[in-house]
Computed example of a mutant assay.
Amino acid sequence: MRTPKSWSPSLAIALLLAVLLPAPVLAVAASTDAPASQRNDTGDSALSDQQAINREIQLFRGSAISLSQAMAIAEALHAGSTTADVSFDGASHAPVYRVKTLHNDRVWQHAIDATTGRIVGGPAALPVKELDADDRSNLAALRAVRQRLSDAVRVAEHAASGKAISGGLVRERGRLNFAIVVISGSELKEVILEPPGAAGRK
Rank of each mutant, 00 (worst) to 15 (best):
T3L: 10
A159N: 06
H78K: 14
Q69N: 08
I165K: 10
S87G: 12
D41I: 11
R2V: 02
L47A: 15
P196W: 05
E157A: 06
R106I: 08
L131Q: 08
H78Y: 08
P123Y: 09
E190W: 08
S10H: 09
I119G: 03
S63P: 03
V120T: 08
I119W: 08
L21K: 14
D33C: 09
L11G: 00
L193K: 04
L188P: 02
R201A: 14
I53M: 13
S66H: 01
V86R: 00
R154Q: 12
W7T: 02
L139Q: 01
Q58N: 11
T83L: 01
A152L: 02
L149E: 00
V181E: 15
A72V: 03
G80H: 05
G168V: 06
P95G: 10
A70N: 03
A164N: 07
S161I: 04
N138S: 13
S166N: 11
A79W: 02
T116V: 09
S45V: 06
P123K: 09
G122I: 03
E172Y: 06
A141W: 02
Q50M: 12
F60E: 02
Q147T: 07
T42P: 01
K5F: 01
L17Y: 10
Q109W: 00
F60V: 04
K202Y: 10
A198R: 02
L193D: 03
A27Q: 13
Q38H: 10
I119R: 13
G167W: 04
V25C: 07
E130P: 00
F88C: 08
A12R: 00
I183Q: 14
S184I: 06
A152W: 00
A140C: 06
L67I: 04
K189T: 12
N138K: 15
H93T: 14
I13F: 05
A84N: 06
D105W: 08
V19W: 09
L67P: 02
A74M: 05
L188E: 13
H158C: 03
V96E: 05
S6D: 01
H158A: 15
L142G: 05
S68K: 10
N104L: 14
S6G: 00
R98D: 08
G185Q: 05
Q38V: 15
P4Y: 01
N177T: 05
T3S: 07
S68M: 07
A52R: 14
A36L: 14
A64S: 15
A76W: 04
G122N: 09
A27R: 11
P35E: 13
D132C: 04
V107A: 01
T115Q: 15
H158N: 12
A133N: 07
S68Y: 01
K189R: 15
S45T: 13
V28L: 14
A133F: 09
K163R: 15
F178E: 03
S137K: 10
E75T: 11
A29G: 06
D85I: 01
A46G: 01
E190M: 15
G122P: 00
A164I: 05
G122K: 11
S186A: 12
I13C: 07
D33A: 13
L149T: 00
Q51E: 12
D134Y: 09
